[in-house]
Design a protein around this nucleic acid. Structure first.
Length: 285
DNA sequence: CCTAACTCCTGCATGC
DNA sequence: TGCATGCAGGAGTTAG
């Protein structure tokens, strides 16, 4: 499940292998992959052909290739999206959705996505609060790796919410880049139960939580990301190894690293939350 | 305006 | 073996 660290690994790969190159033929193999590009696949391909990639950027879980002339190829990996750099003639992946060829005839870029939650679109860049962003993600908050990330402002915004703390942590308009895995890891590090009401959390506890999220995602990036299977890989098809360092996510029944209590799994928003029953006490009501 | 539920999708694990 | 069911879940959309 690509979250900030995994998307950053992909961004670096695209920056290294695609920046400076000129798009040629683009093939859309599955229309759902560009469903957010409203004008459709023909327009999508036409807007990219002949355009040079200036650089690859990221905010939260979104990444985009800035094109010469001012537009951007914006993408989100969803649950299972991958960008792979492959020499021409490499057999197509089963879930190949979009093929990007280049004018230099070098290795092509492929968007592969099993569960089709991810996608691509071409869009304008706009100025938002001192940052240059693709228009559809103007509402996405800065992530903790952003030099202009303001911890104090995020703490205040989060405490204004009237909801459970994990819901707020997953809200990409408050703080971006955190998904289910790193949310659970950050809550464990901060010793907070996911259902704690935000309005009853002291500012210092919230700051601890943001710090824990930043810390765990930084460590995961250093490990090349988290991967449970072949679904998340870098542009060369290689997996990260942070899954070995996970304290709670997917660890149901295994002993807590801190206290030895068996990690529990609870239903949360039609998915799961993992936590330590002793280190992370459930709120009384 | 704010919050929560719903929805999209495929493959794998599980149980009968 | 085959079929049904549950689960994985990001984020836009819709409902209240």
């Amino acid at each position: 499940m690509p979250e900030l660290p995994e998307v950053e690994v992909v961004r670096r790969g695209i920056d290294a292998h695609v920046s400076g190159r000129v798009f040629a033929e683009i093939q859309v193999h599955h229309p759902r992959a560009i469903r957010r590009h409203v004008p459709g696949p023909v327009d999508f391909a036409a807007r990219l052909a002949g355009r040079r990639v200036v650089a690859a950027w990221r905010r939260g879980k979104y990444l985009w290739a800035e094109l010469d002339g001012g537009e951007a190829l914006l993408t989100h990996l969803g649950m299972s999206g991958q960008f792979l750099v492959r020499p021409d003639g490499t057999p197509d992946e089963k879930h190949l959705r979009v093929r990007f060829r280049f004018a230099d005839g070098g290795p092509e870029l492929r968007f592969v996505d099993q569960r089709t939650f991810g996608g691509c679109l071409v869009t304008d860049l706009v100025e938002v609060d001192g940052a240059r962003l693709p228009l559809p993600i103007a509402h996405i908050a800065r992530d903790p790796m952003d030099p202009a990330f303001d911890v104090g402002a995020v703490v205040r915004a989060l405490r204004r919410r009237r909801t459970e703390v994990k819901r707020a942590l997953l809200d990409q308009s408050l703080i971006s880049g955190v998904g289910n895995i790193y949310a659970d890891e950050a809550l464990w590090r901060a010793k907070l139960h996911w259902a704690r009401p935000t309005e009853r959390l002291a500012a210092a506890r919230v700051a601890d939580l943001i710090g824990a999220a930043t810390e765990v995602m930084t460590e995961a990036l250093g490990a090349g990301g988290t991967s449970f299977d072949a679904l998340y890989v870098n542009v060369n098809g290689e997996s990260g190894y942070f899954d070995r360092s996970l304290a709670v996510y997917g660890q149901e029944g295994l002993p807590c690293f801190r206290c030895g209590s068996p990690i529990r799994r609870e239903p949360f928003m039609n998915r799961s939350s993992y936590s330590c029953p002793r280190c992370q006490r459930r709120p009384v009501r």
